[in-house]
């Protein structure tokens, strides 16, 4: 009887101690514990993504005949040849721009280097909207770096672990940036609309000059502004399909329809500022 009482009291004391440690441990202990578990957890995010790649490889190998694969390879080779020509043109244009900048003593334009990364996991719920990508601090990625993809803006890096990074999506409520409309110089503010149930991702645009109008038939394209700092100019954010006048009568605000492909993005590019690379 006494032993059972002792066991019960011991258990409750251990439990209370563990709860107190979870809640009240010093910030330093919590920081390093959190970081340690994040690094241990990183393979749990990266492994399914890598298994997916392996599955695609075997799917191609088993389910497509040699001639089908040869045809696809041939089409890709034609596409690559086209891109190689465009790359050569690009290089020629770049060197022309550099020589003109030298003659006119203008500052250089190239500000970012791209680090391509695979998306390991999407974590979108009522509290946050994050992507976990398979590259981290070991690849030069730091917090605050911009992330884009073929369809436009993806978001911003909010945490860079050693081999993985957490990206806050452009549709997240906490994501805000300066933007402008294509063909317009005047800056506007873009902010994500946050988690929506069973709807495509959306955002909001504010401080739009009153003379601008948008509709579903004639949407305005919203692009990044150099005022944002971490983003270069002109990357697509989304389409603005409606603008309504604010009560002050000076500005308009509206809804931004984000690209549908944002929800299924598999590869992204992290923009690393060239100045940070030169410092290292």
């Amino acid at each position: 009887m006494a032993l059972r009482k002792f066991t019960a009291v011991r258990n409750i004391a251990i439990f209370a101690g563990v709860l107190a440690a979870c809640l009240l441990a010093p910030a330093v202990v919590r920081h390093y514990t959190g970081k340690a578990f994040e690094e241990f957890r990183a393979p749990l995010d990266a492994i399914p993504s890598q298994l997916n790649d392996l599955e695609k490889f075997w799917d191609l190998r088993m389910n497509y005949s040699k001639s089908e694969l040869i045809e696809v390879g041939r089409d890709l080779a034609r596409l690559n040849a086209g891109y190689a020509i465009k790359l050569t043109e690009n290089e020629a244009l770049k060197s022309r721009v550099e020589s003109l900048e030298k003659i006119l003593s203008l500052p250089g334009e190239e500000k970012f280097k791209m680090e391509v990364a695979r998306v390991a996991r999407r974590d979108i719920n009522a509290w946050w909207q994050h992507l976990i990508i398979r590259k981290g601090a070991a690849h030069g990625i730091r917090e605050g770096y911009a992330v884009i993809y073929g369809g436009g803006v993806v978001g911003r890096v909010v945490k860079a672990n050693t081999y993985t990074s957490v990206v806050e999506l452009v549709s997240s409520r906490g994501f805000r940036m300066a933007a402008h409309f294509l063909g317009e110089d005047r800056p506007v503010i873009y902010q994500g609309a946050g988690s929506l149930s069973f709807q495509d991702a959306r955002g909001e645009v504010r401080d739009v000059p009153a003379d601008l109008k948008a509709s579903t038939l004639k949407p305005l394209q919203l692009v990044t502004s150099p005022l944002a700092g971490s983003f270069p100019d002109g990357i697509l954010i989304g389409d603005v399909i409606d603008l309504t006048l604010e009560p002050d009568g000076i500005f308009r605000s509206g809804t931004v329809r984000l690209p549908r492909t944002l929800g299924g993005v598999r590869e992204v590019a992290v923009l690393i500022p060239v100045s940070d690379l030169m410092e290292e």
Partner: peptide
């Protein structure tokens, strides 16, 4: 703290999940 634009959006999303 919810990620939604307002309490209704937060409640809707949470309810669906």
């Amino acid at each position: 703290k919810g990620d939604g634009a307002g309490f209704m959006q937060y409640a809707l999303r949470l309810g669906a999940d």
